[in-house]
Write a protein that binds this DNA or RNA. Structure first.
Lengths: 226, 226
DNA sequence: TCACATTTTTGAACACGTTCAAAAATGTGC
DNA sequence: GCACATTTTTGAACGTGTTCAAAAATGTGA
């Protein structure tokens, strides 16, 4: 297949039109009719490509996640310590998201929050889960692996997921950060990264280690079924 | 004013009809028309009492928050330790929420998540912020104050807000807990409560204390503007 | 080029959240 | 009881997300 490049073009025009209007007018005030008109197609045709308005937001969010991955991975140099890696990844995340701060709330509601299992969901993309969770965790797996010194064995396996949780927390903070240019979120990142790294190192000490093990056990237990 | 008890009755019928339908059919499948019909009034009249469908969910959530407060406060006996208090409060939270697990996702989207500041929001209640955040923190203030032994001075002031954050985390977990009767959430509570309490005690030790101070500083810095 | 399947596009229709002008009910001062 | 303000209620209308049957465009094998 020459991969219907005509079809792909239409799809791209839709995403671009939607993104533009989402950013300038916000999510609520953009209409599917407006998006379709701007893209030069009919409303029904927009629904041929996207099963819902939310699905377009999800697509945008996913593409930002991919951009983040592409930006962050090459900066993980072998030998840097975990704190630097964490800082680099979290900063890249804010860099990528920055132009879309006005959509943050929407990202949260439609893409970042998982859809509860039993929901007859007309709109949500079939696979869904959380948009891009797996890929994001993979970035942290790489960050942990390339870090020198290596994090203690006791936590190494769970660290990627824990760091991803930290990223979720920072992103949540960013969404509701009303400071100019989300300065406070940047500060949060520069402060959080070394702190988490310190905590990881300290997890070698018996006292801290016991706590960390408890936390890890707790999270593992919470994740496992029944 | 004899406080228009007729008016209040209508309002209550609306909430009851809505709650019933939300629970049996879910949020999406209940319609304002259906709610109004069940309550024996016109659609427009429903909007006289509630500015939006979301506002009804918010009202329900708020009332659950109040129930939680009423259930938890009397159980905070002077002299119990912090872990027990935390466990009691978190369990009461799950107890109150349990019948509405199917609405959890909706609670999150419309009530628990704050509405971003600059949003022209037709629907969200004027005050909003986060529904019931202040009152919830007050419960933890009481829990800290009544706890014996008293938590270290270094963290005492920030503890209520931190514990509230823990509650938010647990609630988030509960919303997406697909285990039967949300058993995993109950387990999470019984495990988390003593762990957090232990952490608080350990915050007396220099190593842990430094970290805790860093975290507290970080959160304070993140909260303060500019 | 022709028949036929598949993909893409259309525009009208539907359902539902929300708004609103006007009517009805209720309250208030006399 | 009467005029008038206020609160409550109505039902029709509007805008928007979504669906759908049918048309148009494109691809495919001969």
């Amino acid at each position: 297949m020459a991969a219907g490049s005509k079809s792909e073009a239409t799809r791209r025009r839709l995403v671009e039109a939607a993104t533009e209007q989402f950013r300038t007018q916000g999510f609520e005030r953009t209409t599917m009719r407006g998006i379709a008109a701007e893209a030069g197609v009919s409303v029904g045709n927009a629904y041929y490509y996207f099963s819902s308005k939310d699905a377009i937001v999800a697509e945008l969010y996913r593409s930002l996640q991919n951009q983040h991955r592409s930006a962050a991975l090459p900066r993980l140099r072998e030998g840097h310590n975990l704190g630097e890696h964490l800082r680099v990844i979290l900063q890249a995340n804010l860099d990528v998201l920055a132009p879309y701060h006005s959509l943050g709330h929407q990202f949260l509601k439609t893409a970042a929050l998982p859809v509860p299992p039993g929901t007859r969901n007309s709109s949500a993309p079939a696979d869904a889960e959380q948009v891009g969770r797996g890929k994001s965790i993979a970035v942290y797996r790489q960050a942990v692996q390339a870090a020198r010194p290596q994090p203690p064995l006791a936590v190494r396996d769970d660290l990627p997921e824990l760091l991803w949780l930290v990223q979720m927390g920072v992103t949540l903070f960013w969404v509701y950060d009303s400071s100019p240019d989300q300065i406070r979120s940047r500060r949060l990142v520069t402060n959080t990264a070394p702190l988490v790294a310190k905590l990881v190192i300290l997890s070698r000490l018996p006292v801290v280690r016991n706590i960390v093990e408890d936390v890890v056990k707790l999270l593992r237990g919470a994740r496992s079924h029944d």
